[in-house]
């Protein structure tokens, strides 16, 4: 297994995901598209496992490597949400997003086979990153849902049922963000002697976390659903800053322990 094989695995997975997206609208069997999509995810996961074996460490160190997990979890989340709520548009959206992140990896790899430095050699490393990538994927899907509901809001105002689905996805995303953040804190205490130092990455993680917390607490008060969609979109922008934006932020240069 090596990065040179990535194109092939990614192409097969993308084919599965695209077929699933088409099947969502054409198939008579409602479960079939989800299984086809999960088949694509399985092919993609095989590549991740292969890289794990090759690198002799989990492929989670570089941005390019975290994008692998993001594509994988996006496709899985899309399929699971389709199975649970039967929203036809979810599969095309999640497939498109997953393929987009695959393309970013192909065109702008930022892939270094750097070995794992001592601070990352911890049992917290794998769960911390996986849980965060899962949170990002779920929150990515809920942002797409919000944008979709927002776009059709003038013709068909979003109902309580649609908003409840948003809320539940945000709860799941927030739960995963919380797990990731606390695992990071417990790990930081082991590695650096302090569980919270307002390091730029930590600060942006807190901004994102507080944003989604605000969304959840504001829902009983907000009558106009558009405002909720605005908050959700804004929170997702904060999340982008936390994920990779800090790497380019002038105020974070040299001071963040998280700049890779």
């Amino acid at each position: 297994m090596s990065w040179s094989l990535f194109l092939w695995f990614a192409a097969v997975a993308a084919l599965f995901w695209t077929v699933a997206a088409v099947l969502a609208f054409t198939s008579r069997k409602p479960v079939l598209p989800a299984y086809v999509s999960l088949g694509g995810s399985a092919v993609f996961f095989a590549f991740i496992i292969g890289m794990w074996v090759l690198l002799k460490r989990p492929p989670m160190r570089t941005l390019g490597e975290t994008r692998l997990w993001y594509s994988f979890f996006l496709s899985v989340t899309g399929a699971v949400i389709y199975l649970r709520y039967r929203y036809k548009w979810v599969l095309p959206f999640s497939s498109m997003m997953a393929v987009m992140f695959v393309c970013i990896n192909l065109f702008k790899p930022e892939i270094h086979t750097k070995a794992l430095m001592p601070a990352l050699q911890s049992p917290w490393f794998v769960p911390h990153v996986i849980v965060y990538m899962f949170a990002y994927a779920v929150l990515g899907v809920v942002t797409l849902l919000a944008l979709y509901l927002w776009a059709k809001n003038s013709k068909e105002p979003a109902g309580e049922k649609d908003l409840n689905i948003c809320d539940n996805l945000v709860r799941i995303g927030w739960g995963f963000l919380t797990l990731g953040m606390v695992m990071g804190a417990l790990w930081a205490k082991q590695a650096w002697g302090d569980y919270w130092t307002w390091d730029p990455k930590e600060t942006w993680a807190a901004v994102t976390w507080l944003g989604y917390m605000f969304y959840l607490h504001s829902r009983p008060r907000i009558k106009n659903p558009v405002l909720s969609f605005v908050i959700l979109t804004l929170c997702f922008l904060m999340l982008q800053m936390c994920w990779y934006g800090v790497n380019y932020l002038p105020s974070a240069q040299g001071s963040s322990l998280h700049v890779y």
Binding site: N164, T178, P220
Partner: peptide, 27 residues
Amino acid sequence: LAAPALWIILLSGAVVLFTAGSKKKRV
């Protein structure tokens, strides 16, 4: 005090994500 607090928050994250969607509730 911080260590148990962190574990309580960790637990709360797990509980929130496992109970999401189970019932209609107020945050």
